[in-house]
């Protein structure tokens, strides 16, 4: 847990990578850790690949920008290509197995490359709306930057008002989180 983690999380505009990053850093901060989160932003307000740069450590963090990430998560074909630059021989590269036509673009130099069926699981087993929470579970399992328990608290903090109205949503979100972790755990066995 003491390790400093650099995370690059990339997806299409609507895939919710920024909110995943936001919840993770929020939870890390609540646990008294140092976190730094910088959203990639360009001129356009919508559209384009959205990247969240996250760093979590026990001490104050240096440059907000980093060259290479410990873990890269890419959720679309464009994101796979866009994030290759953050990968080196220490990087775990995670992408969604439903993304087509990126075989050639997958980083060759990564320490590990995991293809996780998050999109399928969201669609078929849970609900498309919790896709990003599955991703969050995967990030947490791959990095251990926070515990699943504190992630749940952070989700509660952020979405609690919605859960009040529909408690089933809470269950769905927590399931998604666990599921995401499980998808990565298979590889880490």
């Amino acid at each position: 847990m003491a390790k400093e983690y650099k995370i690059a999380l990339a997806g299409e505009g609507g895939q919710g990578v920024q909110s995943v990053a936001g919840i993770i850093v929020e939870a890390a901060n609540d646990n008294g850790r140092e976190a730094l989160y910088i959203p990639n932003f360009g001129v356009e307000q919508r559209g384009g690949v959205s990247i969240a740069f996250v760093q979590i450590a026990d001490e104050k963090i240096g440059s907000p920008k980093f060259k290479k990430a410990d873990i890269v998560i890419a959720l679309s074909d464009r994101s796979v290509r866009r994030t290759a630059q953050y990968v080196d021989e220490r990087t775990t590269f995670v992408y969604d197995s439903a993304i087509e036509g990126v075989e050639e673009d997958l980083p060759k130099n990564a320490a590990k490359v995991y293809a996780i069926p998050a999109i399928d699981v969201a669609k078929n087993e849970l609900h498309p709306r919790v896709f990003n929470i599955i991703i969050m579970g995967a990030v947490i399992e791959a990095t251990k930057v926070i515990t699943l328990e504190s992630a749940k608290q952070a989700i509660e903090k952020k979405l609690g008002y919605k859960f009040e109205q529909d408690p089933k949503l809470r269950e769905l979100n927590f399931q998604a989180l666990e599921k995401g972790a499980e998808l990565v755990r298979q590889f880490n066995k």
Binding site: V25, L36, Y37
Partner: peptide
């Protein structure tokens, strides 16, 4: 811009 947009404690 980094300091403006980034989040930290």
């Amino acid at each position: 811009g980094y300091q403006a947009k980034m989040r930290e404690s």
